[in-house]
Design a protein around this nucleic acid. Structure first.
Lengths: 198, 198
DNA sequence: TGTACATCAGTGAACGCGCGTTCACTGATGTAC
DNA sequence: TGTACATCAGTGAACGCGCGTTCACTGATGTAC
């Protein structure tokens, strides 16, 4: 079923990157097999290697894609703390907790990424670096070096709060963790936080 | 090679729990096979099911054990912020980053635990609950409900800071993340933090 | 306009391998006589 | 004290299965005439 314009194969590749992002965040990296990843995009086994050179190649591509999507979302927020706080509340919502496949790649995969090969970790490093830079710029109610520290703190706080809320069985404790996360994010990064100049 | 006193089999079981803890934190849950886990304890394949009913049974047992060890370590610290700050500095050290097998189970496995079966997640929930309670008690320079929030914040901050420092390829950025983590932990949980009563 | 052909995205069976799990067996030990 | 036996922790081969990867093939399409 071929001999389409060159945009057809590219469309399939993009579809694979998107559906794989969802699957990998839901079932984990080691937990997602090629057969499943490729079936999610409506293809069969063998089609995979026409688009990617290996599973690791796909993982690295997906990680880069996921982080760049997240960067785009963050860039779409107007500057100032209020929009960032809205982002935090949305990030720490029960909906986000209960739908890892649609959510943050770092919350879903961070410790697994740490065990991946250098190609994947390079992709992650580049992507998270850009996000870190952007968040630091948005925290301009802190002196520059503090803003960068707090940007790292805000993101790590978000990642692990969501991870913990997902890991914990007890629904009540899980909800408590989410709302504590909002309070902590504010205590750490809002203009009212200690260390802010504004 | 049997008919030892009953303490012999128990010793083997404890050895398996210990060596498996190391292996699981290093290679991940999906990344560690029974053959490897059992070989780490100096045994062969078949011995496994004399000690555990399934891989999940081992995982749950190891998770419970790891968290109770961590609780014991924390309990051994005298009360007050200074010892807790020392713990934070040690936790966010390059040594801890570079030796996941000897380190914190949450930093190594948190997102994977979130995908595990209920037995494992129950074990995690119970273990982290006790640690949360203890840390909240140690943060008594905050009003009680704030102390609990900050305890959740301090722990999640630690977990994910270490995860991020491990995931990132760039050594300089990784070190920056670790030292930002210390600053953020202090900003969030030290007696000098906003919201503290002392 | 109609037909023959070259292209190549996608198919699906097969590869060796390691997974979690099972099970008949081994052999060092403590006990019984 | 010396020998025969029962125990049972640990052995290691085997199970079916899904993994990542390979490859000969298919068949719908755009192009050439």
């Amino acid at each position: 079923m071929a001999r389409y314009g060159p945009e057809h194969k590219e469309a399939t590749r993009l579809r694979m990157i998107e559906t794989s992002g969802r699957r990998l965040k839901q079932d984990g990296i080691d937990g997602s097999g090629i057969a499943t990843l490729v079936a999610d995009a409506g293809l069969t086994n063998g089609a995979f290697y026409g688009h990617f050179s290996s599973k690791d190649d796909l993982i690295a591509t997906v990680v880069a894609d996921q982080l760049s999507r997240q960067l785009t979302v963050l860039e779409s927020f107007p500057p100032g703390w209020a929009p960032l706080e809205a982002f935090v509340r949305d990030y720490l919502s029960p909906t986000h907790r209960d739908n890892p496949g649609e959510g943050c790649p770092s919350a879903a995969l961070l410790d697994e990424v740490g065990r991946c090969n250098p190609v994947v970790r390079d992709a992650y490093t580049a992507g998270i670096g850009r996000i870190l830079d952007l968040v630091a710029r948005r925290l301009d109610h802190f002196p520059r070096p503090v803003a960068r520290e707090r940007a790292i703190g805000l993101l790590t706080l978000l990642f692990s709060t969501l991870q913990l809320a997902r890991a914990v069985q007890d629904r009540k404790l899980s909800n408590q963790i989410l709302s504590a996360g909002v309070a902590n994010a504010i205590a750490l990064a809002a203009p009212s936080a200690s260390g802010a100049t504004a």
